[in-house]
């Protein structure tokens, strides 16, 4: 099976949008939905070659990222020690563990955000689609690996501009508002925010509620069509209702995008995760299907943690 990148036919790549990835088996397109759904049928002529296969049931799990003996240290302090993991599309991977166990550092290594800390030293390899991220351009990598933060952090601009932010490149060939509109609308729909903001796309993003802001941040990430989405405790600043909406959104997205979520909330991990990685003091203690980690953990530490003995 080979993976081939096909330029999508609608000229969106000219608009600064990365090309759509399709999975090709022996030169033939398998009966799977395209990695990125666009257009939602609202824009005539655009959605045809990208029609979503409705009768598709099984989840297509495919490796997106592979972490090979990753180590991260800040000066003398070892934050992550020799961690190997796999990040698959079609799955939600939850990183759990007590505070300071290295979950967030691991997460931030995946899009090289950890490199912004001057003292950070990384060892090991992280592969995105079999390509070593160490040799990838930071900005390119971060377009493919999106991230959502603990605090909702929309930029102080309009809702539309927030979502379009990642699509607007520097230079003379900046796409206009018209070219961006279908992408923005689609991203907002997939983030489950469209119905609430469709009438006021030009309102300032900071006027939205916390939960809406966080979904706007999801839309902002989705607009650049990432292959992987990293979530760093995305619901810790939100109320239960907003949390439930975000969780729904995450589960809906996992078919198309590999999702890694750091969470302190074990119930949340149980609700949405397919795979769980338990970390403790920088070590990966246990990694496996969620049901196994929560119901029949192999390591003693994991047992204690998921039972709530420490945390």
């Amino acid at each position: 099976m080979g993976i081939e990148t096909t330029d999508d036919e609608r000229g969106l790549s000219e608009a600064g949008v990365p090309p759509v990835r399709r999975i090709v088996v022996d030169g033939e397109t398998p009966p799977v939905r395209v990695a990125h759904r666009i257009g939602n049928g609202a824009s005539p002529g655009l959605d045809e070659p990208f029609a979503v296969e409705q009768d598709f049931e099984a989840v297509w799990v495919e490796e997106r990222m592979r972490i090979e003996s990753l180590g991260v240290r800040f000066g003398q302090k070892e934050a992550v020690k020799d961690v190997s993991l796999q990040v698959n599309s079609g799955e939600v991977l939850a990183l759990i563990g007590p505070s300071g166990c290295g979950k967030t550092t691991l997460l931030r290594s995946l899009n090289k955000l950890v490199d912004l800390t001057p003292t950070a030293i990384r060892s090991g390899r992280i592969l995105l689609d079999d390509e070593d991220t160490a040799y990838m351009d930071d900005t390119l990598l971060r377009k493919k690996v999106g991230m959502l933060f603990q605090q909702p952090n929309p930029f102080p601009m309009t809702i539309f501009d927030n979502v379009a932010y990642g699509l607007r490149e520097r230079g003379s060939k900046r796409p206009g508002k018209k070219a961006l509109e279908p992408i923005v609308v689609d991203a907002l729909e997939r983030a489950g925010l469209w119905d609430e903001v469709s009438d006021n796309l030009n309102h300032p993003a900071l006027s939205l509620s916390g939960g809406q802001q966080q979904r706007l941040c999801i839309a902002r990430s989705l607009a650049v069509r990432p292959e992987v989405l990293l979530l760093d405790e995305p619901c810790s600043a939100l109320d239960p209702i907003s949390t439930a909406i975000i969780e729904d959104t995450i589960v809906n997205l996992k078919d198309e995008i590999a999702i890694v979520i750091v969470t302190h909330n074990l119930q949340q991990a149980e609700r949405i995760a397919d795979k769980v990685a338990f970390m403790y003091l920088g070590d990966l203690v246990e990694y496996g299907p969620a049901t196994q980690v929560f119901n029949a953990p192999m390591a003693e530490r994991t047992k204690d943690y998921v039972r709530g003995d420490f945390g």
Binding site: N111, L113, L116, D138, T139, L140, L141, R142, K143, G146, M147, F149, Q150, Q151, N153, F155, P156, M157, Y165, G166, R168, R170, C217, R220, S221, V224, L230
Partner: peptide, 25 residues
């Protein structure tokens, strides 16, 4: 906040465009 800058970096923007498009406005 620092995470606002990081949000811009996480969208594949470099420091110059982050300053110009987010921080200065």
């Amino acid at each position: 906040p620092k995470h606002v800058r990081e949000a811009s970096f996480a969208l594949g923007k470099d420091q110059a465009s982050t300053i110009r498009r987010v921080l200065l406005p």
